[in-house]
Design a protein around this nucleic acid. Sequence first.
DNA 1: TGCCTATTTGGCAAAACTGCCAAATAATGT
DNA 2: ACATTATTTGGCAGTTTTGCCAAATAGGCA
Lengths: 106, 106
Amino acid sequence: MANKINAKYQEMAKISKALAHPTRMFIIDKLNEKEHCVCELTEMIGVDISTVSKHLSILKNAGIISAEKRSNMVYYNLQCSCVLNIFSCVLDVIQSNIDSTKEMIE
Amino acid sequence: MANKINAKYQEMAKISKALAHPTRMFIIDKLNEKEHCVCELTEMIGVDISTVSKHLSILKNAGIISAEKRSNMVYYNLQCSCVLNIFSCVLDVIQSNIDSTKEMIE
DNA sequence: TGCCTATTTGGCAAAACTGCCAAATAATGT
DNA sequence: ACATTATTTGGCAGTTTTGCCAAATAGGCA
C-alpha cells in the first residue's frame, strides 16, 4: 500500500463521485426547484423506478439529499444548498472549456 | 431508449466524473500551488507513473488541466481557476455533513 | 548513433458502477 | 386479512474504471 492519498481526498472524491452521473445531476437540478417523490422523478427521467431509487440512495449516502417519508411516499430534498454552488461551478468549467475551444479555432 | 436526461447533464456529469477520484483531487490541490511534472506528482502520490499519467490524461481530457512539454518533461497546470471553486464547494458539503451529524448526536 | 530519463500507450485482471427484473417492505384503504 | 400503491433491496449481466506491467515514444546528451 504505497498510496499516500489521505482521507481528505477520499472524502472529496466521494462527493464528486455521487454527482458523477447525468441522472443524479438532473435529480439535483429538479430538487433545487422543489421536493419530489421517487415517483415524480421516475416519471421525469424515464428509467425503472428501482434505478431512480438507487440513484437517490447514492445521493443520500453522500449527504447531498435528505429523505422524508409522508404517507406511503418518500419525498427528497437537497440537504444543503451548498451543492448548488458545485452545480454552478461545474457549469463555469464547461463554459471555460467552450471559451478555450473558441480561442483555439480563432 | 426511454431516458430523457439531456446533453447538459451529460456534460456536467463528465466534469464531475473527472474529479471523482482521490488521486485526481489530490493532483488538483497540488497544481493549485504550482505546476508539476508527472515525475513530481508520482513521487508525492506513490503509485505507478503510468497510473498517474492516466489520471492526468483524464483531467486534461475534461479540460481541467493543461500540459506543457519542456525538455523531456511534461508540466501540468490548472487550465482554469474555476475548478478551485468546485474544490471549495465540495469541502463545504463535507463540512455541512459534519454539522448535520453533530446535530443528530446532540 | 546509442543511452538515459520522462512520459504515454496497450493490454490485462480485478473492482466498481449501471440498469433491469423480481421479490421484499411499508403504508393506505376495503 | 387482502389488495393496492410507493419504495427499497437482492441479484445478475453488461459496461466502465482502476492500476499494474511491458512496450512504445520523445527529448537530451555523450
